[in-house]
Design a protein around this nucleic acid. Sequence first.
DNA 1: CAGTATCCGGTGCGATACTG
DNA 2: CAGTATCGCACCGGATACTG
Lengths: 168, 168
Amino acid sequence: MREPPVTGGRSPDLRDYETSNCPVAGAMDILGEKWTLLVLRDLFAGVRRFDEMQARLGAPRALLSKRLRRLEDAGIVQRVAYREPGARARHEYRLTDKGKDLNTILVALKEWGDRWVNAPGRAPTDLVDRETGAPVRLALVRGGDGREVTARDLRMVPGPGAIPKRQA
Amino acid sequence: MREPPVTGGRSPDLRDYETSNCPVAGAMDILGEKWTLLVLRDLFAGVRRFDEMQARLGAPRALLSKRLRRLEDAGIVQRVAYREPGARARHEYRLTDKGKDLNTILVALKEWGDRWVNAPGRAPTDLVDRETGAPVRLALVRGGDGREVTARDLRMVPGPGAIPKRQA
DNA sequence: CAGTATCCGGTGCGATACTG
DNA sequence: CAGTATCGCACCGGATACTG
């Protein structure tokens, strides 16, 4: 039996389910190491070579090497060999589809950082529509009609993979 | 002078700007320590008391204490004292507005984790509209008309706070 | 219940230096 | 240019115990 809810408990209550298969935990398991998300930020910004990345990040080379390998093992990044005419072989790092799909995470972090960390109105980058140049932002939209909803309209409910805790 | 772009360089190139004021780095500076985002996940799920959080996370108590203090110092979480009638005083942790605004980051992590980490179609939680019950997801929308755009339509350009690198 | 304090072995990080 | 090797130190994780 749980304590009486201090604040109006939702029902069904998410706290009655396991956290072992939490997707946030799964994501952070790969992305949560130091430097990793900054590596990805740079990859999204078009940085593809080891040294340039290292110079921008200021991270220890050994660490960067380790992170890139981890991302490669996770299928987020692909090491691609190439050779410019007359130059010696090199290789670069590229985002896979799985890696490109991290875009919204980066955008969410950027937007929050812009709102709460940096000086207001001083964002170092803007997201715009490639065609029109109109600003682009992240929003919660409702399936079906694609209408935008606010965070307050949002509700989390147990999904198909929810695992109830024993002794419910 | 930079190396000739291996892949078609955008222009203006984001790599010509400083990373010192990067909002992603700013956000990760606060959120990037181990356990922190999982603590926030639990707070969003309605967990407010220390011991319950500790039990769900499995994190060392000392660590959890440290993380909560850090979040409190950052203005993301607020320690609130309360007393149930006839019980002794306690206190709980609540998200501030700054904390609630982390919602999209958590949702982005969740969605990516659901797509790439867990078994397909087995998400432990679903996001739905509180009124209609329709599924809700994160999307990139264009300012003005609020139309959804794809990641491919997206472009990052230097913003008002961009700091050019010397020797451009 | 809600922490803080202490210890201790392991891991991760950062700085530097070296190699192909 | 693209890493690997090494080394001290800080921090983490886990256990245990103590305080209010």
